[in-house]
Nucleic acid binder design. Structure first.
Length: 220
DNA sequence: ATGACGATTTACT
DNA sequence: GTAAATCGTCATA
């Protein structure tokens, strides 16, 4: 499938986060091996106003510098002393918004990915290979040197559009995972996933969330 | 120079 | 469910 081009990324993170579902992240290892996984879960980080975002209040350091580049840039960071997480920068130049890739369904090079993950073989349904932001980076060999890469023009990592004929995925939503900040931003609906997919990192909230007046007694 | 902490994962009770 | 693993980055001094 054709790669996503600049205009796809040069849009608001919330839109890109939804539209990335069903697209394919492609990785060419130094050995030439091609790995690929379908994006099944994302989170939007919407910039300087977003208390959960690395660029909150215009914060700009060597670590998050890639967020300030043009849409289509890859932003990779290291966390908890042992994991990488990867993001797709969105919007325009100097507009620090991004989409975190949280889970993939492994598609090509699955045995290689499983080995990179330290498991003997992939689960038959692809579980436990790329179903988490740290896991997918480990599986696909995404690390420090990929920070700042251009997904539009680079030759080691890019994203391809949904397969022709693919049904528009049913999307489920929820609050983002792992945020410590106790603000409205912690509860904002900025996490997106393909409904009922086997490779989601964590369950999404079930049922209707719009009735706020649920009492403690009525919770079953 | 020092200390706190993190957009996580894993193993263990 | 809880806790450990593990270290680069950034704010403070």
């Amino acid at each position: 499938m054709p790669r996503l081009s600049r205009p796809f990324f040069a849009r608001p993170a919330k839109i890109v986060a939804r539209d990335l579902l069903g697209c394919t992240l492609v990785r060419i290892l130094p050995s030439g091996t091609r790995l690929a996984g379908m994006i099944v879960e994302t989170e939007a980080y919407v910039g300087v106003k977003d208390a959960g975002c690395h660029s909150h209040k215009g914060r700009r350091t060597p670590k998050n510098e890639a967020m300030y580049k043009q849409g289509g840039t890859f932003y990779v960071y290291f966390t908890y002393g042992m994991h990488f997480c990867c993001n797709v920068v969105c919007g325009g130049d100097n507009e620090p918004v991004a989409v975190l890739l949280r889970a993939l369904e492994p598609v090509e090079g699955v045995p290689v990915m499983a080995k990179r993950r330290g498991i003997p073989a992939a689960h038959p349904l692809g579980k436990n290979v790329c179903d988490g932001p740290g896991k997918l980076c480990q599986a696909m060999g995404i690390e420090r040197s990929d920070n700042g890469a251009d997904l539009v023009s680079g030759d080691s990592i890019w994203i391809e559009s949904r397969m022709r004929g693919m049904k528009i995925p049913r999307i489920v939503t929820g609050p983002r995972i792992g945020l410590s900040t106790e603000t409205v931003w912690k509860n904002r609906v900025l996490r997106f996933g393909i409904k009922d997919h086997r490779c989601l990192s964590k369950p999404f909230p079930t049922g209707k969330t719009r009735n706020k007046k649920t009492t403690s007694k009525s919770r079953g």
